[in-house]
């Protein structure tokens, strides 16, 4: 489903080159629930933005659902994001001017879907996350957990092949975090492929498999116990 080989991402200024990802490799199979962990600045978010085609990469190869995405233009990348990827962000990233229904509808409109199908998918997604009764509410009228559920409904409504979650419980209290995580587990059990970036060990433990990133590279913690002991000593990557 998601395969990166020798992938690198370099941020260049006039005086310095900074590697956010270096010779990075990952292979996520269809239906897997993978947690990507690492300390702050290790390159987790960079990995997620590249995986979600929000950013381009500098070198290496990235196959998404069997498609080499390196040569795709902006429109093609937008189409893949819209049809194959669902995003769940730490800050929910709902559009404050739109109500719950319209927020969930946003990606479906960009797909050019007919109104009747959109309506059906929106209601299905909202029922799936338990917020069908809040369709007319605005994000500001919802709790953090409810907002994240709306974001999950938005991600699910388009029936994506891949769900990318960036610290999905990072802005939630423990109880809300637990319910959101249970929802993600339910979604995974129904067959979705989920890649979740987190620095929360408890959250990572709920995934099928963990991938650790340190200094922009995938690391096997069993072979690198020093990182396990003191994650804060693991470089200063942006």
């Amino acid at each position: 489903m998601l395969k990166m080989t020798h992938l690198s991402k370099v941020y260049r200024t006039e005086v310095v080159e900074t590697y956010a990802l270096r010779d990075f490799n990952i292979d996520v199979k269809e239906g897997e629930f993978v947690a990507v962990t690492g300390p702050s600045g290790s390159g987790k978010t960079t990995f997620l933005t590249i995986a979600g085609l929000l950013e381009t990469f500098t070198g290496g190869e990235y196959l998404l659902d069997g498609t080499d995405v390196s040569g795709l233009n902006d429109n093609a990348r937008s189409k893949i994001r819209n049809e194959k990827i669902g995003f769940i962000f730490q800050a929910f990233n709902l559009i404050p001017d739109l109500n719950v229904h319209d927020n969930v509808e946003v990606p479906l409109r960009y797909r050019g879907m007919k109104a009747a199908e959109r309506k059906q998918r929106i209601m299905d997604a909202l029922e799936r996350v338990g917020l069908a009764s809040r369709a007319k509410h605005y994000p500001a009228e919802l709790s953090g957990g409810q907002q994240q559920r709306v974001a999950i409904a938005r991600a699910l409504a388009g029936s994506p092949r891949l769900l990318l979650a960036d610290e999905p419980t990072g802005n939630l209290d423990t109880q809300m975090a637990r319910s959101v995580l249970e929802l993600l587990e339910d979604i995974h059990r129904e067959g979705a492929t989920i890649v979740m970036v987190t620095h929360d060990p408890e959250l990572a433990a709920r995934a099928q498999r963990n991938v650790h990133i340190i200094d922009g590279q995938e690391v096997d913690l069993a072979e690198e116990p020093r990182f396990h002991a003191d994650p804060s000593a693991a470089g200063s990557m942006a």
Partner: peptide
């Protein structure tokens, strides 16, 4: 956010 969920520049 709109771009992330699939909006093109044209959208």
């Amino acid at each position: 956010i709109r771009r992330a969920v699939g909006a093109t520049r044209g959208h």
